[in-house]
Write a protein that binds this DNA or RNA. Structure first.
Length: 899
RNA sequence: GGAAGCAUAGCUCAGCUGGGAUGAGCGCUCGCCUGACUAGCGGGAGGUCAAGGGUUCGAGCCCCUUUGCUUCCACCA
């Protein structure tokens, strides 16, 4: 009849099978159901180019925990999955593979290239999904989306047109970051600064004399890190307050090589303290110079082609690469005697975060999103707490960005992505932004249009993810029901790219926040604290870890021992510890099932398969104690999880299962289970009932963290529910609080620990079994144990051992240990070294003195008394009383011993 | 240049709005193959909570200063 757990825990043999079962049963699927409260998470869509890495594993484990938890709590839990087309990343990868075949993307043409890209998506887009499944992610795969599927495309076009109409999307000529290798503009957020060793070239330009010729005697010296840009210089700037250069007002300088006169302008931007206080101005190739140029109406001379070679404005340098041009220009300047000196200089250079190429600031016509109005509700939402960031300190990073926000450059010169819905009239060039190609030009009546060649920044579509995936811009039931979503889980590294943009998009399009909480996690680093990266080759593949230790172990490892938003180090020893825990749970469960089976064989009935009320009267102190402990655990764990303190919550479950349940309760209950007496069957049933039900609830608490092992055990041990993942989350039950029993067993644990210590010190041969009877002068303690017997295996072999238990705080209580069949009687005096005992008591006395001082300090402190809540004061008063009692006992015992 | 974080046991890290560091895992060490589990059981050693100052009856936690490390933002030619 009974199913059995395999003798050894082998995750490989259970995980895939259980996942398939869950899929088949459609447990992950959520439908609109107005009778239930929704709980929604949208997945940060992984790139289709992606391979699951530790960051994903952490991110998705956290989401899965929250979703499974809420699902068990009875929410209609939807975890909305999908993937991101990742325009640049994917396009770069495809170009790479094409290169291997000796094909250029231009050879294929736009359509041919896109065909390849879609094939590529089909081939690799599913890979990461399969990997997420390995992890146990309970996403609603029936709702899987893609940022470039039909619905998302619609949403993108809709938003673009709406915002354009509002004037918040515009096309403008600006200086942008250009990647000469990817051949596209990139946003500020995609620029990564890198410290590079370079040079500082000190150069001088001759002033222009009265005849309009370069002076032979007057020069203006300055320094630059990019001498080649001089080809595009249109001015030289000094600070208006700089008296050294006051004489330059209105004069011109001679731009060598290009051989023309350019003005000297005065601008606050120039730092007088830095270098010579003179700056050459190249508006077309430097963002700051661009601003200066705008202020002084300077011409913008672009000297570069898109591939970073010099263009026709560079005269004889035309066609040279930027670095080659630099070399030759420096040589020429030197020949002319205009090079003063070369200094070594290390400075930050902007590079493209995707390919590492040094970016080139260029002036280009690009599409921008105007941010000043759009950002306001996003700032407000975090300020007034509508959206909570966890940990809170992330707010600083958030505001740092919003306060310095600049317009968002959204056009990319790529093919893979959402093509901009802007159309140019072939006859008059009029720009029409519309959802589809217009038929007639509103300006000239022309009927032929060409669509803008550019595509949108990949984050433009992901910004809409929380509502586009739910059907927007259509008015869907889903949108109505699941939006706003609840929690967003992500790494702090994409707060600017994604989080902020989703927030302002949500407010703008939906008039409502996209989620109420953002839960940030840190980076997963290697065992030495380095970032995991391909180039270092120090990445740990989560799939290998799963293969070796199981997904459960990996998940537990990623969640424990880490506070929100902090980076964590990953090393195998920690995974091993997690796997060992899974194994522990496995074996404890085997033990319980084994005993149930034996009991059934003996009595022919499963007389523990009853309700709590039916078994209540038969429970013994140990049973009540563990039930009470479990009850508290349920409350605490639920609390922690609701506060998103996942690591703390699971740590508590771990401690409960291993220490309290396995190491204490199971040991205490063994003698009862092994008893051959028929009279003990009732007691046996009570313990089996407790074992099974405590285990079941503990498994439930653990399930969000370790879904596979808990499901396998749950389904084996029990028949009425078909899966733990749709079972009911345990709830705190007041009637299962047994304070007296709890206190008594805790006391006894202290005592037994004492016995073990004594025995170890005396090197007494171990006895296998022992029963502990509690003799207490306190009535309530006696009452608890009157009927109860507590048995231990692997316990000390002494009998009639008196142990002081004032450590647990109750005076004059003592424990006597009776060992069956033992003939050895060891008087207390022989067991305890009097000197040691005095030392211990003196230490205790000192500690109590400290405690008394502390509590007295509090109770006598006016400020504390006026401000502290009553409960707190009462608690402290109780402590005071307890400490005073203990003190008295310690003192009398000391006196006794010292005599 | 601006900002944030970290500094607690040999290692990696928890410690909630200030109220006893019996902290956790790993490692080390001693003793156990006890009928669930050697992926285990029972003990033990190991911390002036980075340094200095302040607030407080009381500080790992709050404030200031210093030192060291990490990260983010900006970028001065």
């Amino acid at each position: 009849m009974s199913k059995e757990l395999a003798k050894t825990y082998t995750p490989k043999s259970i995980e895939d099978r259980l996942y398939e079962k869950w899929m088949e049963k459609k447990y992950f699927h959520a439908e609109v159901d107005k009778t239930k409260k929704p709980f929604t998470i949208v997945i940060p869509p992984p790139n289709i180019t992606g391979q699951l890495h530790m960051g994903h594993a952490l991110d998705n484990t956290m989401q899965d925990i929250l979703i499974r938890f809420k699902r068990m709590q009875g929410y209609n839990a939807l975890w909305q999955p999908g993937t991101d087309h990742a325009s640049i990343a994917t396009e770069v990868r495809i170009i790479e593979t094409l290169k291997e075949e000796g094909i250029q993307k231009e050879d294929l043409g736009r359509e041919g290239f896109l065909k390849r890209a879609w094939e590529w998506k089909e081939e690799y887009g599913g890979r990461i999904i399969g990997q997420l499944k390995k992890l146990g992610s309970s996403c609603d795969w029936d709702r899987e989306r893609f940022t470039m599927d039909e619905g998302c495309n619609k949403a993108v076009t809709e938003v673009f047109c709406k915002m354009h109409e509002k004037g918040w999307i515009y096309k403008g000529s600006r200086i942008i970051n250009w990647c000469p290798v990817c051949n596209t503009s990139i946003s500020d957020a995609e620029v990564e600064y890198e410290e590079q060793a370079g040079h500082f070239w000190h150069i001088k330009y001759p002033l222009v004399d009265e005849n309009g010729q370069p002076s032979k005697t007057e020069f203006l010296e300055f320094a630059t890190t990019r001498p080649e840009t001089m080809l595009g210089d249109t001015a030289v700037a000094v600070n208006p307050k700089d008296e050294r250069y006051a004489y330059l007002k209105g004069r011109m300088v001679w731009l060598p090589i290009v051989n023309k006169a350019i003005p000297v302008v005065e601008d606050e931007y120039v730092d007088m303290e830095f270098g010579t206080g003179v700056v050459k101005i190249t508006p077309a190739h430097d963002p700051n110079d661009f601003e200066v140029g705008k202020r002084h109406n300077l011409p913008e001379v672009n000297i570069m082609n898109d591939d970073a070679t010099i263009n026709e404005n560079g005269g004889k340098y035309e066609g040279l690469d930027r670095y080659e041009a630099r070399k030759q220009i420096v040589e020429e300047l030197e020949k002319e005697g205009l090079l003063v000196k070369i200094e070594d200089y290390s400075h930050n250079v902007g590079t493209h975060d995707r390919c590492g190429t040094t970016i080139e600031p260029l002036i280009k016509k690009q599409w921008f999103v105007k941010m000043d109005e759009l950002i306001k509700p996003a700032v407000e939402a975090v300020k007034n707490g509508d959206i909570k960031l966890i940990p809170e300190r992330m707010e600083k990073t958030y505001f740092n960005w919003t306060d310095n926000i600049r317009d968002w450059c959204i056009s990319r010169q790529l093919w893979w992505g959402h093509r901009i819905p802007a159309y140019y009239c072939d006859s008059c060039g009029e720009i029409v932004v519309d959802k589809k190609m217009p038929a007639v030009c509103p300006k000239c009546g022309g009927t032929h249009f060409t669509q803008d060649e550019d595509t949108l920044d990949t984050w433009f579509s992901s910004a809409l993810w929380p509502f586009s995936t739910l059907g927007w811009p259509e008015k869907t039931e889903e949108l109505d029901y699941f939006y706003p979503t609840d929690v967003l889980v992500t790494g702090y590294d994409i707060i600017f790219f994604w989080v902020i943009r989703m927030i302002f998009s949500g407010y703008e399009q939906m008039k409502e926040k996209p989620f109420h909480t953002v839960l940030f996690h840190g980076l997963v680093r290697d065992s030495q604290g380095r970032k995991m990266s391909k180039s270092l080759g120090n990445g740990i593949d989560p799939l290998e870890i799963i293969d070796q230790y199981g997904a459960d172990a990996l998940r537990l490892t990623l969640i424990t021992g880490n506070a929100p938003g902090n980076d964590m180090r990953f090393y195998n020893e920690r995974v091993e510890a997690s796997r060992n825990f899974a194994n522990k749970v496995w074996n404890a469960s085997r033990f319980i099932m084994m005993n149930m089976e034996q009991a059934e064989e003996k009595t022919g009935a499963r007389n523990w398969e009853v309700s709590y009320n039916e078994i209540k009267e038969q429970l013994e102190p140990a049973d009540k104690w563990i039930l009470s402990k479990l009850n508290t655990l349920v409350r605490d764990v639920t609390d922690n999880m609701e506060q998103y303190e996942l690591g703390i919550a699971v740590q508590k479950v771990y401690d409960f299962i291993w220490d309290e349940f396995c190491d204490w309760y199971i040991e205490m209950v063994k003698p009862r289970l092994y008893s051959k007496e028929e009279a003990d069957d009732r007691s046996k049933a009570a313990s089996l009932w407790t074992l099974k039900n405590v285990l079941k609830d503990a498994l439930k608490l653990l399930h969000p963290y370790m879904p596979f092992v808990t499901e396998e055990i749950f389904c084996t041990i029990q028949s009425e529910e078909e899966s733990i993942m749709i079972s009911r989350w345990p709830e705190y039950a007041k009637e299962r609080n047994y304070e007296k029993e709890e206190a008594a067993i805790e006391l006894m644990k202290e005592a037994v620990r004492g016995i073990r210590n004594v025995r170890t010190q005396m090197n007494v041969a171990p006895s296998r079994k022992a029963a502990v009877h509690v003799v207490s002068e306190k009535e309530e303690v006696r009452n608890v144990f009157e009927e109860g017997r507590l048995f231990f295996t692997s316990l000390a072999g002494a009998s009639e051992v008196m142990i002081q238990t004032d450590r647990a705080g109750i005076a004059d209580d003592a424990v006597s240990v009776v060992v069956p069949n033992a003939t050895l009687y060891i008087p207390f005096a022989e067991l305890v070294d009097i000197g040691q005992e005095i030392e211990r008591l003196e230490k205790e006395e000192k500690r109590l003195e400290g405690e008394l001082a502390r509590v007295n300090g509090m109770l006598n402190n006016e400020r504390f008394m006026s401000k502290a809540p009553e409960a707190k004061v009462a608690e402290e008063r109780a402590k005071l009383e307890k400490y005073e009692q203990m003190m008295a006992q310690v003192k009398s015992r000391l006196e006794q011993l010292q005599r």
